[in-house]
Design a protein around this nucleic acid. Structure first.
Length: 574
RNA sequence: UGACCUGUGGUGUAAUGGUAGCACAGCGGACUCUGGAUCCGCUAGUCCAGGUUCGAAUCCUGGCAGGUCAGCCA
């Protein structure tokens, strides 16, 4: 059986990366071993774009019976911290990623990297350069003009001596670097003698003050993959131009490390990163949103971070569904946020407990219903999941309905409550609006209605009458007030970065991306715990926020339900 | 501008020389105790120009458009 037949179910097509992997497998590369990795830098939180990268590498390892490593690329002590390591691990676990015992740190390879660097110097492949950062930038040249360094022909022994003294701490920050000696005329700027080591007298969060020289990412990344036996290094497009450099480094290492088989080396394959409209995805910008207080933190439910999405009410399954629909290719893309929202609804529809909750209450008095009477109506917990059973919802003379479910002068196609009109109260009774009570300013403050005892449970009456709408409701005396946080997209523009001169992405922040209200919900939710998910029927999906206390529950709106009427209303406005 | 990469409905993504398919969005309908869900249908696409071929989204040439790179960030 061919590799293709073994792994592809009939008719199923695989992305271009798996195609390459299947070819490698067919050719027996690396003895059929598949080993991938996810290499985050611990300087920020993971976002939905990272989920795309993680799931690719993780799923490939799983599908092809390979291994998956988690490796922190912690080569820059200035921005990295344990708090990010912990946050990243928590998000990965939540996503269902299992790296077993393979949690690695590039900083653990610093000594090996250093030894290789010395060997590169001895072989004439690297030299110590004393250009300042500004001078180096200037002397790098332009894509058309070759660059230069006055130090590239420095004697090997001199470089070796200086490099050792760099490590020993004899020189100040930025005074010199170790550079690979490659090609100062290369049209690929990354080949113009890239920096391998820089001097930073900074404490590293794991290495402490052991080092004052730190390897650059370019010198560290590929070699770390090599050390770990990674067979396929999957990364985003911007590293495409780095690949020749990584291959060059590996070629040099292969000259030193001759024990390993010839094909033992990582193959880098690049794919397009995920972009979502109406949000920003760069760590730098997300950090600014946090630091400048536009959001409450990395886990603010409006953030595209995994922590934010989790708090918003997304499940790992919804994230995976979304990523699966997005797919992997090399062309730049901007995914419509509606696909993410679709994934949330698709997933939550199947799992969410239904309840009734009124966000914007309008009091309804059922005038012919006995004072003081309470009935407990049976309601279905989840129509998509019959095993979920039913619950009892209290009903009484005074209830709240959604203000938007009543109109005094209903336009065409408005099916809900209006003067003289009859509607169904879900699981309860049919009611007919008899009076509209207003305050002195003409605002509607109360509705009077009568109910039909024959419709108990919400069932159709024997006379064959029909209603066009079913409303959600809560019994006023039984309802629990809760805080609801209604979220909308964080930015008003599809591309927040598309701004005129002098402006930046924060200018298009949506001032109404968070609206806080008090809602009234049925007593069923009273013991809900943070993370519990509900569908408020006819309204949307909500998730209990960790800010909840014994006194007050807080709900985050994950996403609204699809709303036919709002579409019609919008069209009627035009 | 130099190198590298990429161009398929509005947005994503398949088709690997042989009927351009799927999903999201949009539009219409059926059904419904959620205007939810479900079901059915419709609109809409191969960047352009040549060439190879019986046949090109696919191969070749030349354009055009977009992206990436010129940190001692990753």
């Amino acid at each position: 059986m061919s590799v293709k037949e073994k792994f592809n179910k009939e008719e199923e097509s695989v992305n271009f990366i798996e195609e390459i992997i299947q070819k490698d497998l067919e050719q027996g590369r690396n003895d059929g071993r598949i080993h991938t990795r996810f290499p985050p830098e611990p300087n920020g939180y993971l976002h939905i774009g990272h989920a795309k990268a993680i799931l690719l590498s993780y799923n490939i390892a799983k599908k092809y019976n390979g291994k998956f490593n988690l490796r922190f690329d912690d080569t820059n002590p200035e921005t990295e911290d344990y708090k990010y390591v912990e946050a990243i691990k928590e998000d990965l676990r939540w996503l269902g990623i299992d790296w077993e015992d393979r949690e690695f740190y590039a900083s653990d390879y610093f000594e090996q990297l250093y030894q290789w660097a010395e060997e590169l110097i001895r072989r004439g492949y690297a030299y110590v350069c004393e250009l300042s950062p500004e001078e180096m930038a200037k002397l790098r040249g332009t894509p058309k003009q070759p660059g230069q360094s006055p130090y590239r022909d420095r004697p090997i022994e001199e470089s070796l001596d200086l490099f050792r003294r760099m490590r020993a701490g004899e020189f100040p920050d930025n005074s010199m670097t170790l550079r690979a000696k490659i090609d100062m005329a290369s049209p690929n700027m990354h080949m113009r003698d890239p920096v391998m080591y820089r001097i930073k007298h900074k404490t590293h969060f794991r290495q402490g003050d052991k080092w004052c020289i730190y390897p650059t990412y370019d010198w560290t990344h590929g070699q770390s993959d090599y050390i770990e036996g990674i067979t396929h290094s999957l990364c985003t497009l911007e590293f495409e131009v780095h690949r020749p450099l990584y291959d060059w480094f590996i070629d040099r290492i292969k000259e030193i490390d001759t024990e390993k088989p010839k094909d033992y080396r990582p193959r880098q394959i690049e794919f397009a990163r995920l972009n979502l409209n109406y949000t920003v995805m760069s760590k730098r910008k997300l950090l600014r949103l946090v630091q400048e207080g536009y959001v409450s933190g990395w886990d603010d439910p409006r953030m595209p971070t995994l922590a934010g999405l989790r708090r918003r009410g997304y499940t790992p399954e919804a994230i995976k569904l979304f990523i699966e629909k997005v797919g992997y290719a090399k062309r730049e893309n901007i995914i419509d946020i509606s696909l993410l929202e679709w994934a949330a609804r698709e997933d939550l529809n199947k799992r969410a407990q239904r309840i009734m909750g009124v966000i914007d209450p309008l009091k309804v008095v059922i005038t012919n219903y006995p004072d003081g009477m309470v009935e407990y109506m049976e309601a279905i917990n989840n129509p998509e999941k019959p095993d979920a059973g039913t619950r009892k919802v209290p009903f009484s003379k005074v209830i709240y309905i959604e203000r938007s479910d009543f109109m005094e002068n209903p336009p065409k196609k408005f099916y809900r409550l209006a003067p003289g009109r009859e509607v169904r109260l879900r699981y309860a009774y049919w009611i007919k609006c008899t009076d509209v009570i207003k305050d002195e300013n003409g605002n509607i403050i109360e509705i009077h209605a009568t109910y039909d005892p024959q419709t108990r449970g919400g069932h159709n009456p024997p006379d064959g009458r029909k209603v066009k709408a079913t409303l959600h409701w809560v019994s006023a005396q039984h309802a629990i007030p809760v805080e609801v946080r209604l979220y909308d997209r964080l930015f008003l523009k599809p591309d927040p970065d598309d701004v005129p001169e002098g402006k930046d992405f924060t200018d298009s922040i949506n001032p109404n991306s968070l609206v806080v209200k008090t809602a009234y919900v049925e007593p069923f939710v009273k013991d809900a715990k943070p993370g519990d998910k509900f569908q408020f029927e006819r309204v949307g999906y909500f998730c209990v926020d960790p800010d909840s206390t014994d006194e007050k529950l807080v709900f985050n709106r994950t996403v609204t339900l699809k709303d036919e009427w709002s579409k019609i209303a919008k069209k009627q406005k035009k």
